[in-house]
Design a protein around this nucleic acid. Structure first.
Lengths: 261, 261
DNA sequence: TATAAAGTTCCATTAAATGGAACTTGGGTT
DNA sequence: AACCCAAGTTCCATTTAATGGAACTTTATA
């Protein structure tokens, strides 16, 4: 195995609950001989991938990684455009907005705009939620064909709540509706008490696809405000879709949306 | 040389003007045989450090790097605290705020909050400016002793503008004033037309030091607003300093600041 | 479709990574 | 203050991966 592979294993050890690692952490987490762990951490620090925390033996990600990672949203300029749209809506209405991408059957938030309200949805960037049981996930899945969706779930899935899709066929029904209406909605699915509205858009030139999402406590949004959010998301995404010439984009169909619950 | 070193060289190729690289780019930038460049990029992609842009031969930083890099601000929790202070001030007054760290004689912005005004200062994260000719830089340098500052500039420096420090002795005079007043100020230095106010704070437990900075067009801020900014920055930083038990913190001395130009 | 540019694969050579064990360092205890 | 244990580092022979030149393939361009 290449040392590169071990180095990436180290990077994957970091998470929102583990901000730094030690030699012993690596031995435990990766089952690596401690001689290797010791040299690897030192090598990664010497190269600039990690930095030591003060004078301690703890290692954390480096400024270099921070900067290169930050470029991701510009390299994937679709994310940057989507973030501008979501940020503007979030600023205006005060609810949490974020931009996510799909990795297989999981959804990862890439950028977030925390809401201003006392009761707000908090999403931490990098956390993963199941695609089938979220509005962001279904907005993105709706861009696939039914066959592609079935292929993603060869063994089906277990609904995490009563409002989530029960099985593949239920999911496909909901995706058909997403395609018709141009937006996806969730309520009490991956997270109880949370309602979310999402719209997806892609860039055929790069193959990137993102979901624009506004998320809020289930009880605090009036029908008129819900419609306003849907309209803002749809219009913002439509603008991006026309820029990228996204042929798979499903435009908003307000005639249907207005009759929705 | 280890492949790790080459991989980091690749990461360093990315910048705000180069969001993705190709095999040929590496051959040109790093003088590497193209067989190596080809294999290295593929290996980095296979390991998850890079991803390919659509179906093209272009490589960009990966989602993994984005996420690990994002953790930097939490690993260095001082940055997170400083960012909260700067974000609140920036939101309130509408001018651009940012948090920076020092690397040798250069200052790197880590987080930024763009202002709301039509005329605003735009800082891109990761850009480097000289420490001696910026308020952030001097706020951080003021935490060192005069000897340490002299050691940083064995060959002196060349002032980029008329308002920047002329030489080491001029710089040391200004740092002495920063220590007395508890904040640093710049005008038309690294960037013409821009005025900035900064305060620095550190965390002895980790060795981290950051500067909190508010930046605005030189002409648009009244004396009262300038004082309000200084007060907000100073109070926010003082709160952090008491949390981290930062002994090198220079508290605000408004009696002096109020008589300043 | 010809041609050049860009990218990939192959191979023997060279250099680095590995893991076990011995050694050192640092914190906490009696 | 000497001791102990856990954590981290260094050493070494062995194994494994990286290297760069050249041949080959693919992709873009006229």
């Amino acid at each position: 195995m290449s040392i590169l592979s071990s180095a990436v294993d180290v990077l994957r050890c970091f998470s929102s609950t583990r901000h730094d690692v030690t030699v012993t952490d690596l031995v435990t987490l990766l089952g690596m001989p401690k001689s290797n762990a010791s040299r690897l951490l030192r090598a990664m620090r010497d190269e600039g991938l990690l930095e030591t925390v003060g004078e301690s033996k703890r290692y954390r990600p480096s400024l270099l990684l921070n900067q290169v990672g930050h470029l991701y949203r510009f390299a994937a300029s679709l994310i940057d455009r989507a973030d501008a749209v979501v940020g503007a809506i979030s600023d205006r209405i005060g609810h949490t907005g974020y931009v996510s991408v799909r990795r297989g059957t999981e959804i990862v938030a890439v950028t977030a705009h925390p809401g201003r309200h006392a009761l707000r949805v908090v999403t931490s960037i990098g956390d993963r939620i199941p695609a089938f049981a979220s509005s962001t996930g279904r907005a993105l899945l709706a861009r696939l064909t039914d066959d592609e969706v079935r292929a993603l779930y060869p063994a089906g899935f277990t609904p995490p709540s009563e409002t989530a899709p029960r099985d593949i066929d239920d999911l496909l029904d909901r995706l058909a509706r997403v395609r018709d209406e141009g937006f996806a909605e969730s309520r009490d699915e991956a997270v109880r008490g949370v309602r979310a509205l999402s719209v997806a858009v892609g860039d055929p030139a790069t193959g990137d696809e993102v979901a624009l999402c506004l998320s809020f406590p289930a009880a605090t949004v009036e029908p008129a405000e819900r419609l306003a959010i849907i309209r803002s998301l749809g219009e913002g995404a439509a603008e991006i879709a026309s820029l990228t010439k996204d042929k798979r984009f499903h435009p908003l169909n307000l005639a249907i949306a207005e009759t929705a619950p």
